[in-house]
Computed example of a mutant assay.
Amino acid sequence: MLVAAILGVLEGLTEFIPVSSTGHILLAGHFLGFHSTGKAFEVLIQLGAILAILTVYSRRLVALAVAAPTDPKARRFIFAILLAFLPAAVIGALAHGFIKTVLFETPMLIAIMLIVGGVILLWVDRREDQPIYEDAVDFPLPMALKIGFIQCLAMIPGVSRSGSTIVGALLLGASKRSAAEFSFFLSMPTMAGAFAYDLYKNHAALSSSDFAVIAVGFVCAFIAAVLVVSRLLDFVSRRGYGLFGWWRIIVGVVALIGLLLQSGGA
């Protein structure tokens, strides 16, 4: 239960920043000796992060829903989010078995992806191109679909769902704040879909003790994620994403060293 709480906090703190929450949880679980049935814990505790962003963005979501019947701009934004979600829904369902049994079980790959992603994030953050879009609501539909395909790279643990969508949006002309905000909105259907599909695939194998551990992780993830979501947009508007790039590189290098020492000791 203690390890589940630690991993839950880690999920909440890292889900919406571009450092790969799944990569952090899988590596932490590996070194802490944590094993979950069908790797379901690592996916299902994302429900806490989903509810956190629904809580923080509840007023904005209600406003969009109310405006949609009469406001073409609101309808287009909702459609853009659903369009961006579509590639992950299709590819994620087709590749689910490979992702869970191969990619989730390869900590060395996760560490390498953290480092590579950190370097890319630093490069993108330092580009001085003038942004074309200052508001996520203004992203055109073709741009949303492209971001959706880029998000699929995050099916490799260590890449980061938020990191891939943010980098994709930045390269396509978004400002740092609007890139993060679009990533927030896109996370809702993406994470909800991953949660529902993983629960469907694994519910028969999960015991009551598994659900208890998942519940602890869920609550801790929710609390930590609320704190992050409520502050992240202002932070990236002022400071950019450089800090997260360096964090990825440091964690990836430390994990690589740990894995090499483990394999050498074995």
Rank of each mutant, 00 (worst) to 15 (best):
V216R: 08
L145W: 08
E15W: 04
L153H: 02
P72K: 03
I110N: 04
T22M: 11
A215F: 12
Y133C: 11
L26C: 03
Y57L: 15
R238V: 13
L27G: 09
H30Q: 07
L114I: 02
G258Y: 09
I257R: 05
V116Q: 00
V66R: 11
A80I: 11
R161M: 02
Q46P: 06
Q130C: 03
D210E: 07
A196W: 10
R126M: 03
T101Y: 05
G118I: 07
D125H: 01
V119S: 01
S36A: 15
T101P: 01
G148L: 07
V56G: 12
A212F: 12
G29Y: 06
M188T: 14
S160K: 11
K201F: 14
F31I: 06
L256H: 11
G23T: 00
H96M: 05
G23C: 05
M108H: 01
A4E: 14
N202K: 13
V213H: 10
P107E: 08
G242T: 02
G97H: 05
S178F: 02
G12L: 12
P18R: 07
L261P: 02
L54D: 15
V253C: 04
V213D: 12
V19L: 01
M188W: 10
E15P: 05
S178W: 03
G245N: 01
R161F: 04
A84V: 02
E15N: 05
S36W: 01
L121A: 06
F98N: 04
A111R: 02
I250N: 00
A28K: 03
F104V: 02
I50G: 04
V236C: 11
I81M: 07
V253W: 10
F16Y: 14
I99K: 09
D138S: 15
V3D: 12
A204H: 13
A49V: 06
F31W: 10
E128F: 00
A196G: 10
A84G: 15
S207Y: 08
G158E: 01
I249L: 05
K176L: 08
D129I: 02
S230D: 15
V56R: 11
I214T: 06
Q151D: 10
I120C: 05
I150F: 09
A95S: 14
D71T: 01
G92Y: 04
L199V: 07
A95L: 15
R126L: 00
F222N: 10
D129C: 04
H30K: 00
A65W: 12
V66N: 05
S183A: 15
G168L: 04
V3G: 11
S207H: 13
V62P: 08
L64K: 04
I150C: 13
T190K: 02
Y57E: 15
S208N: 10
S209M: 13
L51N: 06
L259N: 07
P72Q: 00
G33F: 10
